[in-house]
Design a protein around this nucleic acid. Structure first.
Length: 751
DNA sequence: TGGCCGTGTCATAAA
DNA sequence: GGTTTATGACACGGC
């Protein structure tokens, strides 16, 4: 029965796809609910379908992750997703939304050549204004998307199920309702809260389409006038459009002109002006040479969905056109280009967003869950949304979802197995691979360490079992520094490296220190095998108390730099430092350990040093220890803690030195900037002096005495008054008021 | 062989 | 008053 359902569903979906491709509108909405319920369960459309919840869904559907039916399961979901994407036309939201905003009559008037665009602010120009509009609308759309999960794949669900919103009443799936209309309607709905427009009446829709193409052209043309770059793009797009379209350019143009004649771009956004020009019989302008739109021919039933795709793709960026062409030419929405890694990058950003709008999309788990409305943010409105929707590859899913999984299952081999189950293609190389490798290496090192530490085979097998059973827990623990303080954490590093396991972990640097703590625990558990139950209990409680060691483990790990004693940059002494460090640790720590062994101290030094004082005292009281033993234990504890303190102190010292060094460098840079600025100022002053001197000479040379003769520069001089006036004075000191004139104005008048 | 460096340890003060 | 932490000073070993 299950197989019958599967094949029945797939057959219907494939038929729907074919019908959609040949232009017959397939409204799958009414049928989607039964399909959803068949495939996803009765509440699937309302439940959040996140990838990491897939297992739960599978449980609900009696689909085990390892079941062979998974393939068919996801295939059916994928096909349904395609069908859903077919009955709408999604256009780069920013572009289309811009058109709609620009339709606002009091806002959008594209200026004619040589005329300033009478936009808001006037001087802003078209580019800025359009950019602002795009930006604002994009922001608005994102907000709207976050509120109602956006449109696109999610929209239909919300409309079909729980979101009546403001859909117009007469839109109920008219037979001749084309895709563009539906999308524009969708956009009207989406932006109804912006107060820009009411949805156009039916009679206005043709005009809307015209405006759409007018805006396309006018944008491109204005940009062209601004920077002379996009005109070529537009021409290329037209050429591409013509090449792809079954209708020639001239045919399109003729159709366009016959249907909606319009004139120069100054009137493009002004329908009244268009009408007036049409009435006046004035010949249209270069607009027609660039503006064309088979999309306009929605009156023409010969232009089908594919044609409209061509239209939309022709308005996009060249690279997007290529992609879209791949989609179209493949004869199906499914295309290899849909798995373009470039778009996977886009989807990565989307997948990181928690609680994204994928929740209400019942098919998103097969696609990895996309957020169509967020696409323009990361992709800058360069591609069709269906693309984003479908190109969310499984690799993205694994890379993005798994780190979000609890208990640190990033490196969980089971997780990778599960994720690979969802891949219908070979697993692509991804960062997860490296993570997994690291995790496996850690596990291998761990096992080697256990063998080195003299664990018996039973313990080693238990270790292996633990790692195999739930490496996520193990990793989680390893990420948690078993220390509430930096000193303890650093100590765990140094102490572990001082022991015989230093060869394994000392070279790990700060990265391996968290594993060291685990090693310590294991060592304690192993070392105290012959100890009393109290010691064992303290080992477990002291090192593994979650409340004590689990506070912000990641930040703790980040905050602790146990390479404080090493230069920040690579230095030739680095190897030496590590070597000497481990060697000395081993040697010196062994001294105290040897003493402890000689005195038959029943605890390890790690335990002595790292136990909290209460438990440490309790430990001492519960054992009959001689005074010498107690002294040695206290000395060991004191020295161990002091050693950690010394390390911290030196690290802080170095930090202070580095900060001072950086401060000095910063001050030097600041000083250099000031010197440069000073030089520029001097140069500027010098230039101004030169200009002033030249001006002085020019003014003086134009001065004449009463007989019209030039004034001798040896006898007269110009003096500048505080009130901005210029005085002519004699050189001998007797101020001559004979030519008292107010600066330049009077001079010009004199001229 | 002396200098440098890293580290451990002690003494001491402060929290 | 005991414990912990920070820090200067010193010693030691390696390079």
């Amino acid at each position: 029965m299950v197989c019958l359902k599967k094949y029945f569903t797939e057959g219907l979906i494939q038929v729907a796809i074919l019908l959609s491709l040949v232009g017959v509108r397939v409204d799958v909405g009414p049928y989607l609910h039964p399909w959803n319920e068949m495939i996803l369960g009765p509440t699937s459309a309302l439940t959040q379908t996140q990838f990491h919840n897939l297992h739960n869904q599978l449980d609900g559907q009696d689909l085990h992750p390892k079941s062979v039916d998974l393939d068919g399961f996801f295939t059916a979901r994928r096909l349904l997703g395609w069908v859903r994407s077919l009955d709408r036309l999604r256009v780069p939201s920013s572009e289309l939304e811009t058109w709609l905003v620009r339709r606002e009559p009091d806002v959008l008037v594209v200026g004619a050549p040589g005329q300033p665009a009478p936009l808001e602010g006037g001087a802003g120009g078209l580019e800025d204004h359009v950019g602002d509009q795009v930006e604002s609308v994009m922001r608005s759309s994102v907000v709207a998307g976050s509120q109602e999960s956006g449109y696109g794949p999610i929209r239909e669900d919300s409309l079909d199920t729980t979101a009546p919103l403001v859909r117009r009443s007469h839109e109920e799936e008219d037979e001749d309702e084309d895709l563009y209309e539906e999308d524009t309607d969708m956009l009207w709905q989406d932006h109804s809260d912006l107060g820009h427009h009411q949805r156009p009446e039916e009679g206005e829709e043709e005009e809307l389409v015209v405006d759409t193409w007018r805006e396309i052209w006018s944008d491109g043309h204005s940009y062209d006038r601004a920077n002379g770059e996009l005109a070529q793009d537009l021409s290329d797009q037209i050429a591409s459009l013509e090449a792809q379209s079954s209708m020639s350019f001239q045919e399109c143009l003729q159709l366009l002109e016959d249907t909606f004649p319009f004139g120069e771009e100054t009137e493009l956004s002004d329908p009244v002006g268009v009408d007036q020009r049409e009435a006046s019989g004035e010949d249209p302008t270069p607009v027609r040479e660039l503006l064309l739109s088979p999309l306009l021919s929605h009156e023409d039933p010969s232009l089908d969905l594919e044609q409209q795709w061509h239209d939309i793709l022709a308005t996009m960026e060249p690279e997007d056109m290529d992609l879209g062409r791949d989609v179209i030419q493949s004869g199906s929405i499914q295309s290899s280009s849909l798995m373009d890694p470039v778009h996977q990058d886009v989807s990565l950003h989307q997948a990181i967003l928690p609680g994204s709008s994928q929740d209400s999309y019942p098919f998103n788990s097969s696609f990895g869950g996309s957020v169509p409305l967020l696409a323009p943010l990361s992709q800058s409105s360069s591609g069709p949304d269906f693309d984003l929707n479908l190109t969310f590859g499984p690799s993205d899913l694994t890379d993005t979802t798994l780190p979000l999984a609890p208990h640190g299952t990033v490196g969980n081999p089971m997780a990778s197995i599960q994720s690979s189950l969802f891949l219908e293609e070979p697993v692509l190389p991804s960062p997860l691979g490296s993570l997994l490798d690291d995790a496996l290496l850690d596990e291998i090192s761990f096992l080697d360490l256990a063998l080195e530490e003299g664990f018996n085979p039973t313990q080693v097998s238990q270790l292996e079992e633990e790692l195999d059973s739930d490496s996520g827990l193990s990793l989680n623990f390893s990420h948690s520094p078993a220390s509430p303080s930096s000193s303890e954490a650093s100590y765990s590093s140094s102490s572990s490296s001082s022991s015989s396991d230093s060869s394994v972990f000392s070279d790990e640097g700060a990265v391996g220190y968290s594993s060291d703590m685990e090693v310590i625990v294991k060592r304690e558990e192993g070392a105290v095998g012959g100890y009393s139950p109290e010691v064992r209990k303290m080992c477990s409680t002291s090192y593994q108390k979650p409340g004590r060691f689990n506070s912000l483990p990641w930040l703790e790990q980040v905050g602790h730099d146990h390479t404080y004693n090493q230069p920040r940059a690579t230095s030739p002494t680095q190897g030496k430092s590590r070597y000497s460090k481990t060697y000395e640790h081993d040697k010196l720590w062994g001294r105290d350990e040897r003493r402890a062994l000689a005195m038959k101290i029943p605890f390890s030094n790690d335990l002595i040093v790292n136990l909290p004082v209460e438990e440490f005292n309790e430990l001492l009281t519960k054992h009959c220890l001689s005074e010498a033993q107690l002294n040695l234990i206290r000395d060991i504890r004191r020295r161990g803690k002091n050693k950690m303190a010394a390390q911290n102190c030196r690290r802080r010292k170095l930090d202070v030195l580095f900060e001072l060094e950086e401060g000095v460098e910063g001050l030097c840079r600041h000083k250099a900037r000031l010197l440069k600025q000073k030089a520029e100022n001097l140069r500027s002053v010098r230039e101004m002096k030169q200009r002033l001197s030249g001006l002085y000479q020019e003014v003086f040379s134009r001065l004449r005495d009463e007989q019209g003769r030039p004034l001798p520069a040896t006898d007269y001089t110009l003096q500048f008054g505080n009130d901005g006036q210029v005085l002519l004075a004699t050189r001998n000191g007797s101020a001559s008021e004979q030519n008292h004139k107010p600066h330049k104005k009077q001079k010009n008048r004199k001229k």
